[in-house]
């Protein structure tokens, strides 16, 4: 079992395990948003999990959710450089997020709010201009609603839906225009979804939410 040192603390990890999960299991928190345990690669690329690693005297910046552990690896989860890059990454995520916590279904259990407080930041970007796109809400499903204006493109819903063999959601377009959506933007109710609601469970934000939760997608 590889043994490594994270922030001065020695831990052991499973061979090939990604740094992020090894750290979290040992009680060391590394911010993350798009990582799914068991997924080969992170789907989204939020870059919040950046850490610095040192192997054989070389030091570099890697994303903890994609980098496998190595024997004698030294990992620093918090340096000035990392803090700066994480702040930029978080601002980037929030710059096209429709912030509307008081009407939001996830206001009591929002990953973005937790991240903001752990990064000691506000939800509202301070240096980047906020540019929320005008994307239509999909209200068609009887049990849940999808509001792409709150989607942070973490890919967790894409991954679970794929895992149960349906793949109703996927990443589409690219760059700033990227949006997680259905085939040809068809309404969710028209696809044969059997309402397992796994996507709603994994969504870290108010983008996918149960109708009964009383959140709204407008306002």
């Amino acid at each position: 079992m590889p043994s490594l040192v994270i922030d001065g603390k020695e831990i052991t990890a499973d061979p090939g395990e990604k740094i992020l999960w090894a750290a979290l299991r040992s009680g060391i928190y590394i911010p993350n948003l798009c990582a799914t345990e068991g997924a080969e690669l992170p789907f989204g690329g939020c870059r919040l999990c950046l850490v610095e690693v040192e192997v054989g005297g070389r030091r570099e910046m890697v994303t903890a959710c994609s980098e496998p552990v190595q024997e004698k690896m030294k990992i620093y989860t918090y340096t000035e450089k990392i803090a700066r890059m994480r702040r930029t990454a978080f601002e980037l995520i929030m710059s096209d997020h429709h912030i509307d916590c008081k009407n939001c279904a996830k206001r009591k259990d929002c990953q973005l709010i937790r991240l903001a407080s752990s990064l000691k930041m506000t939800l509202q970007p301070k240096t980047l201009r906020s540019l929320v796109r005008d994307l239509p809400v999909d209200d068609s499903h009887p049990l849940f609603t999808y509001d792409p204006k709150k989607c942070v493109k973490c890919g967790k819903c894409v991954f679970v839906c794929q895992g149960i063999g349906k793949s109703f959601l996927d990443f589409t377009y690219r760059g700033f225009e990227m949006v997680v959506t259905t085939f040809d933007h068809l309404p969710l109710s028209s696809l044969g979804c059997e309402s397992c609601l796994e996507c709603v469970k994994v969504c870290p934000t108010g983008a996918l939410f149960l109708k009964e939760s009383g959140g709204t997608a407008d306002g």
Binding site: Q162, K166, S167, F168, L169, D170, F171, T172, Y173, R174, T182, F183, D184
Partner: peptide, 25 residues
């Protein structure tokens, strides 16, 4: 067209959403 993307998905045994993902990329 939508129909064409569906035929292609069927042919490759891929979910239509994945074809759409590629086409829009």
């Amino acid at each position: 067209s939508r129909e064409v993307m569906e035929s292609v998905a069927h042919f490759f045994h891929l979910p239509p959403s994945e074809i759409f993902s590629v086409v829009t990329f």
